[in-house]
């Protein structure tokens, strides 16, 4: 009983000795939007679009829990005239760590280099239409249409990025993401070409870049 009471007290006295600036647990919340789609939508010939924003809290200038929400979609007609269409909401939750070590005794910088992980999630519908099936020997021809396929996709992201305070409370920065879908799909199983929040779903992994502008409250 006595040991229990003494130990935390010891730890506290140590902390105050080493840090001249008292530690503040909560250091505000940054709300931001991604401006990269302005460029990326144009680059994909308007085949795909993705808009997103997020909020990220600053805990001890060290831990940055984050929630991201967005809306994305695709409309693509292949060289074989198959049309794929989707749009839907997506969300991600995760945690970043600040990799910049504050200098001893100095005020922690508002410019941060972050690395962390996300779990992404999207529940959406897609259509895949005009799949022409022919058989020359039996002289058969049919068109397959899947007008409304509902799926839930979950993925994992490893992220890295930075945020710089450009004007007071206004932040800019980038995030690069390496994404991997969770769960193995069986051979022949229907699989959407595009997943909102994940992007093109061709190999089970994908890259993403965000360019963010935000405000810290």
């Amino acid at each position: 009983m006595l040991v229990c009471c003494v130990l935390p007290l010891n730890a506290q006295t140590k902390d105050t000795k080493t840090d001249s600036i008292p530690k503040v647990w909560y250091n505000g919340i940054r709300a931001e939007i991604d401006v990269a789609p302005i460029v990326s939508t144009f680059l994909s010939n308007s085949e795909t679009f993705s808009y997103e924003g997020g909020v990220q809290a600053d805990i001890l200038h060290k831990y940055y829990p984050v929630v991201e929400i967005g809306f994305a979609g695709a409309d693509r007609t292949t060289s074989t005239d198959i049309r794929f269409k989707t749009n839907g909401l997506f969300g991600r939750v995760g945690l970043d760590f600040n990799l910049m070590k504050p200098k001893a005794g100095a005020k922690p910088s508002n410019n941060v280099f972050l690395a962390g992980a996300r779990i992404g999630f999207s529940s959406f519908n897609y259509s895949m239409t005009n799949i022409v099936i022919t058989d020359d020997y039996w002289n058969e021809r049919t068109i397959l249409n899947y007008p409304n396929e509902a799926v839930i996709k979950v993925w994992f992201e490893v992220v890295a990025g930075m945020r710089v305070e450009v004007i007071k409370n206004i932040y800019m920065g980038w995030t690069i993401r390496n994404k991997h879908t969770l769960g193995q799909s069986m051979a022949g199983e229907m699989n959407p070409w595009y997943i909102p929040g994940f992007g093109k779903n061709l190999t089970g992994s994908n890259w993403g870049v965000n360019y963010s502008i935000g405000y810290k409250f």
């Binding site: 074989t80 198959i82 799949i131 022949g188 229907m190």
Partner: peptide
């Protein structure tokens, strides 16, 4: 089974 998916470019086949 008309839902045997190959890829978006190839579409589905009837298995």
């Amino acid at each position: 089974n008309d839902r045997y998916f190959i890829s978006l470019e190839c579409g589905c086949v009837i298995a």
